[in-house]
Design a protein around this nucleic acid. Sequence first.
DNA 1: CAGTGGTCTAGACCACCGG
DNA 2: CGGTGGTCTAGACCACTGT
Lengths: 251, 251
Amino acid sequence: MIDNPGDRVDSLSVVPKYYQLKDILLRKIEDGVWKPKEAIPAERDLEETYRVSRTTVRKALDILVTKGYLYREHGRGTFVAFPRLQQSLHSLSSFTEDMCLRGLEPGQKIFAVEWVVPSRRVFQALQMDDPSENVLRIYRLRLANAVPIGIHESYIHIQTETHITEETLQQHKSLYELLGESFGITVVEADETIKATIADEVEAKLLAIEIGSPLLKIERTAWAQNRQPVEFVSMLYRADWYSYYVRLSKE
Amino acid sequence: MIDNPGDRVDSLSVVPKYYQLKDILLRKIEDGVWKPKEAIPAERDLEETYRVSRTTVRKALDILVTKGYLYREHGRGTFVAFPRLQQSLHSLSSFTEDMCLRGLEPGQKIFAVEWVVPSRRVFQALQMDDPSENVLRIYRLRLANAVPIGIHESYIHIQTETHITEETLQQHKSLYELLGESFGITVVEADETIKATIADEVEAKLLAIEIGSPLLKIERTAWAQNRQPVEFVSMLYRADWYSYYVRLSKE
DNA sequence: CAGTGGTCTAGACCACCGG
DNA sequence: CGGTGGTCTAGACCACTGT
């Protein structure tokens, strides 16, 4: 079983050994070589089989345990977990990534890209301290397969010299992609608050639904790597087209 | 700075060294000894200061990085992250824990505790295979400070001999607590799907709101440690009393 | 008891960053 | 170049599990 090339850890590869090993083991799980509730070989066996140290074995296992493919029981062994319906959906993703994941074609209709004075709500969410500073407001309709499904109102806190225009935003599919590629800002984390509400007149018209239809309202604060807030966005989604999926775990 | 007792790693303690070190470093961050965006001492310095190996230092740092207190930059150093508004809220919690966290007094009004034939939806969600098996249905109203805020309809897949009654459920504050203490089942993970909807006649009456009011609908599948589904629950919450909070991160 | 995962060490080499 | 984090090793001892 360990004879085919894909089953060996390559010492010369740029890919770390623990990562290669993780992929090998993951493959065994997904291919059903090891079945749910079954114990996988002991760490010291894996060490020998793949010619790596126990530390490396454990690092590979740590990843698979964290991702929920395996679970450990002290003194008993390491076991294959039951497969999941969907794998670790909803790590932080942009609308664009999100739609692609759901097999839908993302689109948008931009209504406004402008520098504005932040409201108190926005000022606070972005943890700003200079009241004279402006923020970039982006107001747009989001589409899935050409159907309007959401209204996004974003406030971005970046250098005012930065010029993002409707055109640059159109060119890049995703705002996060634009922030990353053009300004070196990577969004690594976000807080979201999810509420239910109903559509008022304007919202109903934009989303082509009846007044009083249910909407999912998501407010997100997004953070860059140094944990400075970059974006505050309020998102309103049609309940019939959009639901929110989360995986929770103890600890 | 490192002279007071709380600042040393105790080799004899039952608490692992990496965990002790994590707490020491966390303290420094929270006390503001190290400030946001500042570099903390290099790993090799910490190694020497606390008389532990680099592996141990890195394990302590790993935890703090994962929890978002620190971030690393290859070749530059390890830095203190900006503090958060709320720390890692919304790991998996029961309604009871949830309410306590929000500073509200949880309560309930139980309508039904009964063994029933699962619907297809429930059968599928609980990944059952034996069509003759029954599940335990618990139907109840949830209160916060005596105000009705949610309707829970739970389906539990456990041994039929198990007898959970309205009384045992009343005694234990939380269903998860009951499952844990009485049957050794620990819920460690859950999937949740969150939707928006509006109240129908029955729901409106139970929740003391108008028909057509917005509701947050959360469907949760909860898993035990071996990743077998234990509970499927549909939760309906008043939008004016309940919102959902999540923290997302890349990867 | 033997076998498992959990912790820990001292050392090594690499890749990346800044001056 | 020196200093940083990233990876890796070979070995050790402990704590827990089942027989």
